[in-house]
Computed example of a mutant assay.
Amino acid sequence: MNKTVFLLFCCLFVLFCTGCSIPETEPDAISSVSESGVYSADISNSGDFAVISRVNADISVWSLTQNKTLFSWRHQEKGRNIVANIHISADESHVVTADNENFALWNKASGDPVGFWRIDESSIRDIAVSNRGRGILVGKANGNVMFFEPETGRSLEFLGHEEKVNSVDISPNGKYALSGGNDYKAYLWSTESGQIIHVFNHANRVTKVVIDDQARFLFTSDSQSDSQIWDAQTGKAISQLHFIERQWVFTSAKFSDDGKYLLTGSPARRLALWDVNTGDVVKEWRVAPSNGPAPQSAVVYGIGLIGNEVVSISSSGNLEHWAYK
């Protein structure tokens, strides 16, 4: 999504939710990873590191155990950093980053770039990478989704969507893709053939999709009140997230390793843990707001379930830890 449009939307969403009853919470630990703020972030499954696109700076590979920068990356030698999408592979070997026109694949162990590519016919709206960096998924504003294999150069264009693609995710083995768009649909499809496996219909624009790393669940959410957890094998609904608000938009989502929970991050500082089987909220937190004039808020980008802790990175530039057990 265009960063300016997204931030404007988030501000409007914050104003809409000003009257929502969300409890103030204090994290168990908080530290700053970017004084100027964050455009995007992702946290590794192990919780060892995060990759953070920093405002007025670079892309930082940040050690969560040593609390320091391991590598600094840039898409271009000069100019402002505008990377708005980051995804770490499930095996933590590779990272993919993207701005509106370019995407890059990085080797996490060495910190070296594997390659840079440019999209000419449409802007990039979301991106994902499979284990060992073997497959990259690029969701585009023209409604197409490209699956690309860096090693072989093979690419496949999924043409199932009729409008803009907002969110994509890929299975760790790279064989399956999940995509959602403005056409009110989410598709699970094969990256080998482009064949559609399951179709998930929504009443509004699909804004977030996630594949469980262990191939148990799928998550699809629209721009209003329909957020569903599905059985990845059968395509049948397991639960719908229960909330009283007319609208709850998600900017990040991740399933727990034990399959019991779904963790989500949102605009308006919202971080929530959900029961997968019932769709009920188990626990909810509010991350620290950004500094500046009212209304002060923060968009939650990076999230992780690590041991007994929830970890979050928000647009405020804060890294926060929360106990949930």
Rank of each mutant, 00 (worst) to 15 (best):
S123E: 14
I124N: 07
I124E: 01
I124W: 04
R125C: 15
R125V: 15
R125H: 11
D126K: 07
D126E: 07
I127K: 03
I127N: 11
I127C: 15
I127T: 14
A128F: 00
V129E: 08
S130N: 09
S130A: 15
N131T: 08
N131F: 00
R132Y: 10
G133H: 02
G133I: 04
R134K: 15
R134V: 01
R134M: 03
R134T: 08
L137E: 09
L137H: 12
V138N: 03
V138W: 03
G139E: 00
A141C: 04
N142E: 14
N142D: 15
V145S: 00
V145N: 00
M146F: 09
F147T: 03
F148A: 03
F148I: 04
F148S: 05
E149V: 10
E151T: 04
E151K: 04
T152S: 15
T152F: 11
G153T: 03
G153P: 02
R154P: 02
R154T: 09
S155Y: 15
E157P: 00
E157S: 08
F158P: 07
F158Q: 10
L159K: 07
H161S: 12
H161F: 15
H161Q: 10
E162H: 12
E163C: 09
E163G: 09
K164T: 04
K164I: 14
K164V: 08
V165I: 14
V165L: 05
N166A: 01
N166M: 11
S167E: 01
S167V: 08
S167L: 14
V168T: 01
P172G: 14
P172A: 11
N173R: 10
G174R: 00
G174V: 05
G174L: 08
K175V: 01
K175N: 13
K175F: 02
